[in-house]
Amino acid sequence: MKKSVFLGTLVATTVLSGAVFAATLDDVKARGELLCGANTGLTGFAAPDANGEYQGFDAALCKAVAAAVLGDPTKVKFVPLTGETRFTALSSGEVDLLVRNSTWTYSRDSDLKFDFVAVNYYDGQGFMVKKELGVASAKELDGATVCIQTGTTTELNLADFFKSNNITYTPVTVVDDTEAANQYIAGACDAYTTDASGLAATRATLADAENHIILPEIISKEPLGPVVRHGDNNWGDIVRWTYYSLLIAEEKGITKANLEEVAASTTDPETRRLLGLEGEMGVMMGLDNNWAKNAIAVSGNYGEIFEANLGTSTPIGLARGLNALWTQGGLQYAPPVR
């Protein structure tokens, strides 16, 4: 009896693990829940709030996808992942979607068999040091001990940067932002390096933020974006266009507050297509026609999400910079809904 149960379980596991890679959309619908790989805790991007609910710039995108697919932004389960575990988790089907400050690189796209469907934050790697060190430039960090998150592109950029400037450093490898902050505060490292946005977010959580500076050098390009498994193109399209719908909403001036009003009164054909008032746009991807409307209704358009979580009114205080819309001199540009 026990043996047959064991064998039955084995067979079931294999069948299931085989099916994981088939159609993510069907899996999500059948499960009634979106599994979203998120940061273990990076304030502003994805971190649990006082009630244990994930909030932040990346978390908002997960909720928007859940709203577009399932019609309910609360039906998302956040799976906290470190830089080390994130890609294995996505690859093995533990999460449907990874939105965790992950940099789009050639080898991750091709060799690791992932698809980076969009860039939701254009970033670059920087350094944070204590003011009392009297360091004004990253090139003065010769001989310093540097905290670095393992399994990240920043780990490789760091080695390249010190090598090309012909200076040395001692790496202290840490698994996530929280441990990095702890080590940095304890003085186990002189400098902490990660994406500049991550540095700003970490700095905002420090008790004495004014005693820490982010050095001017940006040593790499870090296009961060949502990642899905390679091979399920429809699911990739859903995530990509959910993100673009938030961008287009900002471009068209659709906000969380005026969404219903715009939907009732708009005569702009593209807005009407986006909000599902015209055509069968959602059905093309296997969703409801009001998918984009649901997504925008969660926390507003891209600009609203940015301002609420990272913007100049928050403790993190990041300017839009490269992440402004293309109409305002930034790089955020969505293809037309047609």
């Binding site: 830089g83 080390e84 890609f87 294995t88 690859s91 080898s107 991750r108 060799d111 690791l112 393992t150 399994g151 780990e155 490789l156 490898t173």
Partner: peptide, 15 residues
């Protein structure tokens, strides 16, 4: 575990 099973595994994706 830290080099082969940690950083190398992560950077190459050859779990």
């Amino acid at each position: 575990k830290g080099t082969l099973g940690g950083i190398t595994l992560n950077q190459t994706g050859r779990e």
